[in-house]
Nucleic acid binder design. Sequence first.
DNA 1: TATAAAAATGGTTACGTATTCATTTTGGTT
DNA 2: AACCAAAATGAATACGTAACCATTTTTATA
Lengths: 330, 330
Amino acid sequence: MVSSKDVAKHAGVSQTTVSRVLNSPEFVKKPTFDKVMKAIHDLNYVPNGHARSLVQNKTSTIALLSGPLHNPFFVDTTSAIVHYANEMGYRVNVQFVNDEKLNEAYATAIEHKVDGVILSCILLDDPIFEKLTRMDIPFITYNRKHKNNEHFVEIDNFKAGYLAAQHMIEQGHTAIAWVGGTLTVSTFNNRYLGFLQAMKDYKLCLPEQYIINTDASKQAITDAFHKLMKLEHPPTAICAGADSLALFLIDVAIQENYTVPQDISIIGIDNVDISSHGSIQLTTVGSISEQNLGYLAIRELIEMIENKKNSCIQITESVKVFHRSTTRKN
Amino acid sequence: MVSSKDVAKHAGVSQTTVSRVLNSPEFVKKPTFDKVMKAIHDLNYVPNGHARSLVQNKTSTIALLSGPLHNPFFVDTTSAIVHYANEMGYRVNVQFVNDEKLNEAYATAIEHKVDGVILSCILLDDPIFEKLTRMDIPFITYNRKHKNNEHFVEIDNFKAGYLAAQHMIEQGHTAIAWVGGTLTVSTFNNRYLGFLQAMKDYKLCLPEQYIINTDASKQAITDAFHKLMKLEHPPTAICAGADSLALFLIDVAIQENYTVPQDISIIGIDNVDISSHGSIQLTTVGSISEQNLGYLAIRELIEMIENKKNSCIQITESVKVFHRSTTRKN
DNA sequence: TATAAAAATGGTTACGTATTCATTTTGGTT
DNA sequence: AACCAAAATGAATACGTAACCATTTTTATA
C-alpha cells in the first residue's frame, strides 16, 4: 500500500509537506505543490482514513441504528439520514437491529469511535442509555425515546393516537379496535395511551378483546387480524399503532377477501411516503411538517457534534390526520 | 480516552498481555485473564477499531453504493446486504448515490480502506471501474454491470424484457408501450433489447412514440405517461423497465383517473417485495429464486474477501412472470 | 534434583497520518 | 551587501493497537 512517505520520496520532499499539500495547501509553494500532486497521481495515492482518525481522534463517521427496512418508516428516515450526513461530509455506518441484538450493535459502533450515534431502537428502560452517556459520545434518538432521555426527536405520539381514534369516531364508528406494538417502546406506549384517552373522552365502549399490543411482525399482525374478525362482534374500524402495522393489516384483509374500507376502516400513524401512493391511499396521522424525523434528528446530531453544544434537544412535532381512502363513514 | 496501556497499568501487566486477553485468550493464564478483564471493566475500556485497522490492514468494513431508497428494489437489496454483512461480522458504510455524484462516493469509500465494495450504480462505460481495479479492492456489482466487468450478479435482463412483452402479447394486447430508464445503464439496456426482440418475434407494430427511455425520476415518468396517453392511439399496455417505474406509472394513472388494469395494463420488472402487497399486486417479471440480488452479491463479495479467490463471479438468475392484478386480457 | 520443553509474559516496533517545533529559504529593507 | 522578518520546509513524535521476538516462569521427564 502506497503511503504518504512513498509520495514524499517520489516527489523529493518530506512527508510533512505531503500532508500539508492535502490539508493546508495555502502554506506550500506552487512548484512544490505541483510536484507533490504529480507524485500523488503517479503513485495513485489515497490517504488512509484510519491513520487520520487515529491521530485526530475524529472519524467523520456516524453510526445509525435503525429499525428494519420492511417497515417503511425506516425507509424514509434512513434515506434522509444518510443523504444529509453524506452531504455534510460524514459517512454512515448502518445497522438494522431488532431489539434483541442491540448490545452487539452498540459495541461495534462504539469500537470505531464514531463521532455520533443516531438511533431509533431504544427501549423506555434500556441500559444502553447509560453506556452511551458514559462513553461521552453524542447521540440522539428519533421516533422512540428513553425514559430519561435528553436528546430526542419524535412526533406527538399521544396526540397521534388520540387523533386516530377521534377520526374513526367522527366517521361514525363505535366498534373500534387497537392493534399496536409492545408497550416497552415509548412510541407505541404513548400512541396507545392517546387512543385510550380519546375512547374515554368520547365515552365509547372498548371491550378488552379489541385491544392488541403485540410484536410488529407480519405473522403477529396476521394473527391479530384473525382474532379480531372472528369475534362475535368484530370491530368496524382498526387504529393501527403505526403505518407499517396498518399496511400489514390491509394486506391480510385483502387476502382474506375483506374490502378496505367497505368492510373495515383502517388508520395508521406516521404518514410514511408510500402511504400516499395511489394504490394504497392510507389514511394516517403524521407530522404537520414536511421534514421527516430522521432528517430532524441527523441535523441536530451533527449540530451537537460540531458545536459541542449541550443544550437539550427535545423536539416533538405536532400531528394531524391525513384523510385518504382506507377509512370511511360507518 | 482509555487505551490498552491504561488497562495494562491498572492490571499490572504489559500492554501485550491486554491485547492477548482480547485476541487470543487461550494463551493467557486464568488469574491474569481475570485481572485484565476486571481492569477492562473498571476502566470501561473499549478497543480502538481504527488503531486495529491500521496495524492489521483489515477493516471489517464494506462500502455499499446503492441506488436511492425511493426505489423499492434498493430497499430490498440494502436490507439483505446490511443484514448478511453484519451477521458475518462486517460493518457497512452505506451511500445512496445518484449517477452524478459517483466519484465523491468512491473516494470516501476508498479512503477508508474498506475490505470490499458492493455497488449497483455503475454505468456500462464507467471510468470508476478501472480505479477500483487499480486499487486492488475486491468489488462486485449487483443489478447493473460494467462493460468489462468480472464480478457481477444480475437477473437475466434480456429475458425479463422479453417475457414482459410476451406476457402482454399473450394477454391480447397489440398496442404495447415501453417506459424504461437511460440506456447507458446495462440493466435498462438489456431489458429494452429483450422487449424489442419480443415485439419483433411476434411481428407487432411498435410506433416510435411508444418507446420512452428517460431518467427514472417521478417527474420524468409522469411526463412519459402523459405523453403516451395523449397520443391519438394510446397504448393499452405499458411494459415498465423496472418495478419502481411501474409503481410511478400506476400512481400517476390513478391520479389521472385511469383504472389499472381496466384502462391500461402495466407490468414491471424486479418483483420487489412490495409488489405483492394486497393493495398493489403488481404483475412483474422477477428472479425464479427466492434470494434477492443483494444477498447473492454480498455473499459472493465476502467469499472473495475471505478466501481471496479470484475466479470470476458471474451470476445471472433466471426469471419468470409473476402474474398478479395490474395486467389483464385485452 | 537436573534439565529440557512448553507455557506465559514482556519489550519493542510498525502501521500511516497530523502536529509541533526547529531549521532553512526567500524576499524586502536599509 | 547585510540583515531581519516571513515564508516554506523538514525532523521528530504521538495516536492505540497487533505482531514479532526475547525473556521469564512453569511443567514434565529422566
